[in-house]
Design a binder for these strands. Structure first.
Lengths: 351, 351
DNA sequence: GTAATTTCCGTGTCCGTTCACGGAAAAATT
DNA sequence: AATTTTTCCGTGAACGGACACGGAAATTAC
């Protein structure tokens, strides 16, 4: 790997043209005869010329902006992790003279998502990163992006269109399958409580549907006779949570009670269990929210399946920066991040 | 966050000096009166001047070299992962005009380590990354590095000196504790086979000793009556492995046989089990070698505890690059990487 | 065949630093 | 006070590439 620095001047000299011409060829800015174009291309190939990224950044004072469209968040909740990752990558991006902005929307309100989208479109960004929740509106949005030739990356979950530049997220179906294995762990399981959000019942697009399918498939394969009970709660109303769980747990249970939730809100169940002082449960949930980890430590939750949402977001920003600055193609289009199994013994080292 | 670019010239003007002086202050090159030095410093503070890294890299044609000292490796073994991480970070480093070299040594031969060290010292690198195996020799080595003012980073395991610039590795004791929890999993465990390398018996420094301690502590706390059997094998001789394991497994066992290994070589046990067609074992090991993951898939191993050694190495290189180029201090000195629990359901997404 | 276009290309400045060089001012020496 | 030495500082040329500008050569028009 001989890394002698070939400059644009070396290429120009070797090709018998000026650096201006070489530059035009490099950036496809036209105004170059076919002959010299080919000559330059050949010389570049022969000499193995690689542009110096830093000189390039220095010279071109382009102002790129990346916009991230994600759900609103509060400290400690799921999306705050994604926001954290974005914040962290901001500095890296800034080194390349790239600004990273964030536009948030209410994940329960499609209208607010549409507003966010048009705001983004108006700002005319160089690249967009999307955490999609509303299928139809998102598809419309990305179509407009494509039309304007703006690359976009999905994070967390992705849609079925094919124009996206990259995707970073967890394999949802598999995570459900894994979850079932961890919850049951070879025990004799008769009944499983699946706690869900009420809106799942409506037509809303539920990002965890694939996860639930994976879970149920595992149960079908390994525990065909086990009963699954869906408990629908309103996450914003602790009283409702308590009422619904009281109802579900009304009939007594010999042995362990198996409880699972497919979004990040298992801490709601924990709050309930703690209030009622209910023990003898095996509880598994997702995502490393503060509260969830606390429940892991206190023993109310036996395992969490986690992903580095912050790292996902950071990777997305980095990928976009690379694409913008170096014009590099994606390494991989779909990047499935690993599924981490957390228990009370390894959660303290999960950062 | 107003990110207007303040240049060195702005600072110079505001401080009533020339950019040359500002530069001297920035790099502590002396030849600046105390008065103007303070003035410049104050102005830098006030204006919030941040040097443009890329202009800086462009202008300073320094040739930095980072050397990584790690054990020899063959495709598929533990250290090849570390080597992979180093290779991957090489490109990033090169963007900053930094060369990354690798010097390997025989992890069973202190003499070869010493040779590697003197080779490194002669090459006069800008920074060194060490995966230590021989305590005394390493301490001597890093003392010489310190004397020459060369920063060094430990990876994988670290020593008790305090001059190291950073450390990237797994919390070894905790990983042993976790391992015991996964191996036993609340079952009724009477006896555990701990398979070890013969050299552990000698005075060699065993990097997994803390891990074993963690394991045994867990057992003491949760399974005080469980017997642990040490089986010493020669990893290079399959026949010896078979003989020793035959001997250990001679007496019959009702229920599961619990087997564990604290280094990356659990696949040796798997080979044995497969040859002898022995089932009914619960096997837990460490590290995601090809062979280990295959054993996970085939069901011969129930769980692996893994770390991203490649990422560790890459992080180490990045940290060194940052230190060399940006002169940035470490974010954290000790970086404990997470412990990943792998089973057959999530290992395919572990990269 | 001359003028008007079009195509193509070289020159030169700038981006924000680094650093060698040389010289002015201050301090020390005679 | 003149000279030498030391201290301090400004200047300007790189570094590698981007791009505006203007002009030569090749085409086309008349």
């Amino acid at each position: 790997m001989e890394q002698t620095k070939i400059t644009i001047n070396d290429v120009a000299k070797a090709a018998g043209v000026s650096k201006g011409t070489v530059d035009r060829v490099l950036h496809d800015r036209g105004e170059v005869s076919r002959k010299s174009r080919e000559k330059v291309l050949r010389v570049i190939e022969e000499l193995g010329y690689k542009p110096n990224v830093y000189a390039s950044i220095l010279a071109s004072q382009k102002k790129h902006t990346i916009v991230c469209v994600i759900p609103e968040y509060s400290p400690g909740d799921f999306w705050s992790l994604t926001a954290k990752g974005i914040d962290e990558s901001r500095e890296t991006a800034f080194r390349y003279g790239i600004t990273v902005n964030m536009v948030t929307y209410d994940q329960y309100d499609a209208e607010s998502f549409r507003n966010a989208c048009s705001e983004v479109l108006e700002s005319n960004p160089s690249g967009v990163i999307i955490a999609p929740m509303f299928r139809m509106d998102t598809l419309k949005f990305v179509k407009e992006l494509s039309a304007k030739n703006i690359p976009y990356i999905y994070i967390d979950s992705k849609l079925e269109d094919e124009d996206y530049f990259a995707y970073f997220g967890m394999p949802m179906y598999q995570s459900g399958y894994l979850c079932a294995d961890i919850l049951t762990g070879g025990r004799d399981v008769r009944k499983v409580y699946i706690v869900r959000i009420e809106r799942d019942k409506m037509g809303y697009s539920d990002p965890t549907v694939a996860r639930r399918t994976g879970f149920l498939d595992y149960m079908m394969n390994h525990y065909p006779d086990t009963e699954t009970v869906n408990v629908f709660i309103n996450p914003k109303d602790p009283k409702d949570v308590a009422a619904k769980l009281d109802e579900a747990f009304a009939e007594p249970c010999d042995g362990l009670r198996y409880i699972v939730m497919f979004n990040s809100r298992i801490h709601l169940v924990v709050d309930y269990l703690r209030n009622r002082d209910i023990g003898g449960c095996r509880v598994v949930g997702f995502d490393v929210l503060e509260k969830n980890v606390a429940a892991l430590r206190s023993g109310h939750v036996q395992a969490l399946i986690a992903q580095h949402s912050d790292r996902q977001a950071a990777s997305a920003v980095t990928a976009m920066v690379d694409r913008l600055v170096l014009g590099s193609p994606v390494v991989r289009k779909d990047n499935y991040t690993q599924m981490d199994i957390l228990n009370c013994y390894n959660c303290d080292y999960y950062m």
